[in-house]
């Protein structure tokens, strides 16, 4: 009996709240707008995810991550440190968000997560590789640099190799008794000391104007090198501002050696 009275009270309380207008029905447009918002949020997270994913190969080239591998174990440490981790983490988070949003729709949640996640990732990877192949990021980077746009250069410069201590870039000037000299992007001459312990995966056959990457400890203007290699043309091209040979002259896409020949 008491139970029934309690049930009736709940029923009456609900109906009373509705009748008196204390609880109001949300309009239809509210839900339409909510669905629209979810779709927009999905498109944004998918779009940013695509942009970020397609930037990874570009940033790996620009940061020089791929150039550390020939240095062996030491190089592996630098490679790990130089990878654009924040971008990779951001990409994973965006994909997680996109999957969560998509999972609100029945055509997604009715299928196992592995299928929806694979489709999402597959589309991102294929589109990302197409974008990377089309060198969109290189163009965007050049455009942003030329027009001094905010934000975009910040995104691209975040993983510049110079941010890492023990990594020095410069243009080869000449050989010295115990090594060689390079000039960095601040037009500062740096002496590089080379010993038997210095790893030189591609030998030490540098010519004037070659872009060089040095791994080592710096003391004033002298670097005790534990790794030296020539920097690739792609790397040079993407970091040309850091090479003094081009700092006051037009950019030569063929690389520093080609530039010096013209000169």
């Amino acid at each position: 009996m008491n139970k029934n009275i309690k049930y009736d009270n709940v029923r009456e309380a609900i109906l009373e709240k509705i009748k008196t207008g204390k609880e109001k029905m949300r309009p239809h447009w509210f839900f339409a707008f909510k669905t629209f918002g979810l779709v927009v949020l999905f498109i944004i997270s998918f779009g940013i995810g695509l942009f970020v994913f397609s930037a990874i190969p570009f940033l790996i080239t620009k940061s020089g991550s791929s150039m550390f591998a020939p240095f062996g174990f030491v190089g592996f440490r630098f490679m790990l440190l130089s990878l654009p981790w924040m971008i990779i983490i951001l990409f994973v988070l965006l994909m997680f968000l996109a999957e969560k949003i998509a999972n609100r729709f029945d055509f997604v949640y009715k299928r196992p997560v592995i299928i929806s996640a694979s489709v999402l990732l597959g589309v991102i990877i294929i589109s990302g590789l197409v974008i990377a192949k089309a060198e969109l990021h290189e163009r965007a980077f050049n455009f942003a640099e030329r027009n001094e746009l905010p934000i975009l250069p910040m995104f691209y410069h975040r993983y510049d190799p110079q941010r890492m201590s023990e990594v020095y870039l410069g243009t080869y000037i000449e050989a010295e008794d115990a090594g060689f000299t390079i000039v960095n992007d601040e037009d500062k001459l740096l002496h590089v000391l080379v010993s038997d312990d210095t790893k030189m995966p591609f030998g030490m056959v540098f010519k004037e104007g070659d872009s060089v990457m040095v791994l080592g400890d710096i003391d004033d203007d002298t670097i005790t090198a534990f790794g030296v290699r020539i920097a690739g043309d792609d790397f040079y091209r993407l970091n040309r501002k850091t090479f003094p040979a081009t700092s006051s002259l037009p950019f030569d896409p063929r690389g520093p050696r080609a530039f010096l020949k013209v000169k």
Partner: peptide
């Protein structure tokens, strides 16, 4: 449970347009 039942029906009413 009574509070939860109330909650359920109020949500049903407020969201019924969806």
């Amino acid at each position: 449970l009574d509070d939860l039942i109330q909650d359920i029906f109020i949500k049903v009413y407020t969201n019924i347009q969806s």
